[in-house]
Structures are given as structure tokens and as C-alpha cells.
């Protein structure tokens, strides 16, 4: 590689990851001020995390929302991917395009428009409205992952099972489902992670019970709490990386199992 290119690459990566690297640095720093030089190692901020009930409520809220969103988005993803790969129907391209749109739509637009609609309908905000929004943004990811899982399947596989005496449903369950299972797991994990980390939609649509990112944002107003936020952020980053790694592992395993070439995923 040429020298300027290498410098550029290093700067780029530094710009991308240095802020994240600072998180754990200050999370373990024995001082309330976020500034160098570092003061020494401590577990104090992590210990404090364990003692804030509002935080625990937020974590619980976030987990509920993330689990529900992941499950719903993945179910919708399975249905859409199966329909898209098996059947030809009029307007298929247009419909698939519309479903995938939230992938590129600014989240703030999704959030505001959902908020307007919900308020117009006179519905009260709560965990379920956040779930609604998160399903909307997770489903395209889910479809993209599952589409590639379904596409690699030979359409005659299910027919072969039917031919051997199984019903439509049981052949789906016995043949297709196990073969796309890595994709399903990958979709669940990625949707879960997206929902867990998501801020804008959650900020607009959450009612009186904040999700974890919203709670975190609220805490930033109190300077003495910043190290605690750093500790929490560290945990979130580590959890996200682990989940995405597992998701990618399953996606690749799925690709290998059905013998398709790896076309690259989100990682």
C-alpha cells in the first residue's frame, strides 16, 4: 500500500473507533472528571450501576422491547423472504422496495411521522409504540438476511418432502426451517442489537418509561454521573459486539451448510 493511503486508512479507523475506545478507558478511571491524565483503576462506576433502580427499570424495558421487536421483525422477515423467493406476484419489486425503504430513511422521519400518527389516533405512548417503530426499522435487516438464506434453497427441496408424504406445513418445518435456521438466529440477534441500541425512535415514542439509551441520554445532564454512563456504555458496546459476532457466525454457517458462496453480510 502507498504511504498516503496507509495514513488515510489509519486516520479513518482512528476517527471511527477512538471515541469508542475512550469509553472503557474512563469507565475504569478513578475520577469524576473526563479528562487526561488518568487517575488509576477502579470498579466503582460498575458497582454504582448495580444500585440505581431507575436504570434497572430501563434495562428491563429495553430488553422487553428488543426481544419483542426481534421476534416480530424476524417473523415478518421469514414471511416476506419466503414469499419473495418462492412466488411471482404482480408488483413484487415495488412492494419489496417499499418494505426495504426504512433501511435508508432517516430515523428521525420515521420517528416523527409515527409519533404524529399515534397522537392523531389518540393512542398513548409506551413500550408497545417503541416496539412498533423498532419492528419497522428491524424488518428490512431481517428480510435482507433471510432473503439470502431462502434464496440459496433449492425450490424442489420442499416439493421432494411433499412428494415423500409430508404436508406443506410439515415439509416447511422439517426441511426449510432447519436450513434457514442460521439465518433466523442471525436475524434475531441483529434485530435485537439494533433495537437495544436505538435512540431516536425510542426517544420520541417512549412514554414515561425510558429505554436504556434514552435513560443514558438523560443522565448526561449530571456531570458527576458521566463515569457511570461510561461504564454502562462499555457494557453495551461489549454486548453488541458479542451479539453481532454470534449473528455473523450463524449467517456464515448457514451459507456454508447450503453450499452457497459467501456474498458478505453486515459485518
Amino acid at each position: 500500500m502507498k504511504r498516503p493511503l496507509r495514513v488515510y486508512a489509519i486516520l479513518y479507523l482512528a476517527f471511527l473507533y477512538a471515541p469508542i475506545a475512550l469509553l472503557p478507558l474512563f469507565a475504569f478511571n478513578d475520577g469524576t472528571v473526563i479528562a487526561f491524565p488518568l487517575r488509576g483503576f477502579t470498579w466503582e462506576w460498575f458497582r454504582q450501576l448495580a444500585e440505581i433502580p431507575a436504570l434497572h427499570a430501563a434495562v428491563l424495558n429495553s430488553l422487553t422491547i428488543a426481544l419483542s421487536s426481534a421476534a416480530l421483525a424476524t417473523c415478518l422477515g421469514i414471511l416476506a423472504a419466503r414469499a419473495a423467493t418462492r412466488f411471482a406476484f404482480p408488483g413484487k419489486k415495488g412492494i419489496m422496495g417499499l418494505i426495504m425503504l426504512p433501511l435508508v430513511l432517516p430515523e428521525i422521519i420515521v420517528a416523527v411521522s409515527l409519533l404524529v400518527v399515534l397522537l392523531q389516533l389518540g393512542l398513548s405512548l409506551g413500550a408497545w409504540t417503541v416496539i412498533l417503530g423498532h419492528v419497522l426499522i428491524c424488518t428490512p435487516f431481517s428480510i435482507a438476511i433471510l432473503n439470502s438464506a431462502f434464496q440459496s434453497l433449492d425450490l424442489s427441496l420442499e416439493e421432494a418432502a411433499i412428494d415423500l408424504g409430508e404436508t406443506r406445513w410439515s415439509s416447511f418445518r422439517l426441511i426449510t426451517l432447519p436450513l434457514v435456521m442460521p439465518g433466523i438466529i442471525s436475524s434475531l440477534l441483529i434485530s435485537f442489537t439494533i433495537s437495544l441500541d436505538e435512540f431516536i425512535i425510542a426517544f420520541f415514542l417512549t412514554g414515561t418509561e425510558p429505554t436504556l439509551p434514552v435513560y443514558l441520554w438523560g443522565q448526561l445532564r449530571f456531570p458527576q454521573k458521566i463515569p457511570v454512563v461510561m461504564a454502562l456504555g462499555t457494557i453495551l458496546v461489549v454486548a453488541s459486539v458479542i451479539l453481532l459476532t454470534i449473528a455473523e457466525y450463524f449467517r456464515r454457517r448457514g451459507a456454508a451448510r447450503t453450499g452457497q458462496a459467501d456474498t458478505g453480510g453486515f459485518l
Binding site: S156, E159, I162, D163, L164, E166, T167
Partner: peptide, 20 residues
Amino acid sequence: VPANVRPTNMVFQSYAIFPH
């Protein structure tokens, strides 16, 4: 009469071997 109860069986062009 649906395919799963007909007294016929098929060898598919792709063989459709269940890979898992």
C-alpha cells in the same frame, strides 16, 4: 388428490437431496 398422497414418487432434476 394432493401430491403427498399420490402413489407416485419423483426423482427431481436437481435431486433435491436434503443437505442437512
